[in-house]
Amino acid sequence: MIHRILNHSVDKKGHVHYLIKWRDLPYDQASWESEDVEIQDYDLFKQSYWNHR
């Protein structure tokens, strides 16, 4: 379960990846995930991330 999205990056092919802080895990366990991976409520977290940038 996502706690929040910390950052994003765009690779050379134009694909967006998000650095995800996972609920109940420390920050050093955050991981980069592609924008099209199937994660519960991912779209809501991405929308919230962009609304607050």
Rank of each mutant, 00 (worst) to 15 (best):
V10E: 07
G14H: 01
L6A: 03
H8I: 05
D11R: 03
K12I: 11
W32M: 02
N7T: 11
K12H: 14
I39T: 04
R53Y: 14
I20A: 00
E35H: 03
D41P: 01
L6V: 10
V37P: 04
V16E: 06
N51V: 08
Q40K: 14
K21N: 06
D43I: 01
V37Y: 08
Q29M: 08
L19I: 03
W22L: 03
R53C: 12
W32S: 00
F45R: 03
R23M: 09
S34R: 13
H15Q: 13
N51I: 06
S48Y: 15
W50N: 03
Y27I: 15
I2M: 03
Y42S: 04
D41F: 09
V10L: 08
I5F: 02
H3D: 15
Y27H: 14
Y49Q: 00
K46T: 04
Q40S: 09
H52L: 13
F45L: 08
I39P: 01
I20V: 09
I2S: 04
P26L: 05
D41L: 02
L44I: 14
S34M: 07
S34W: 02
L19C: 00
K21W: 10
K21H: 14
H17S: 11
K13Y: 10
H17Q: 12
I5T: 01
S31Q: 05
G14Y: 05
E35V: 02
W22P: 00
I20G: 03
V10F: 10
P26R: 06
H8N: 04
D11L: 01
N7C: 07
I20M: 05
N51M: 14
L25Q: 13
I5S: 02
L19P: 04
A30N: 08
K13A: 10
Q40F: 06
E33F: 06
D36K: 13
H15W: 05
V10S: 07
S34A: 12
I5V: 02
R4W: 09
S48F: 10
D24S: 09
D28I: 05
H17E: 10
Y27F: 12
L25K: 15
I20P: 01
Y42V: 14
D41Y: 07
Q47L: 08
Q40T: 13
I5H: 04
F45I: 07
S48W: 08
D11F: 05
E38Y: 08
D43G: 11
H8D: 00
H3E: 15
S48T: 12
Y27L: 15
L25C: 11
Q40G: 06
S48P: 05
G14V: 01
S9I: 13
K21C: 07
Q47D: 09
L44E: 10
S9G: 06
W22K: 01
L6C: 08
D28H: 11
H17Y: 13
F45M: 09
W50L: 02
D36V: 02
R4D: 07
N51A: 14
D24R: 07
G14D: 04
K21Q: 12
Y49H: 04
M1F: 14
I2G: 03
D41I: 00
D11S: 09
E35L: 02
H17R: 11
K46N: 01
D36P: 01
D24E: 14
E33V: 14
D11E: 07
D36F: 09
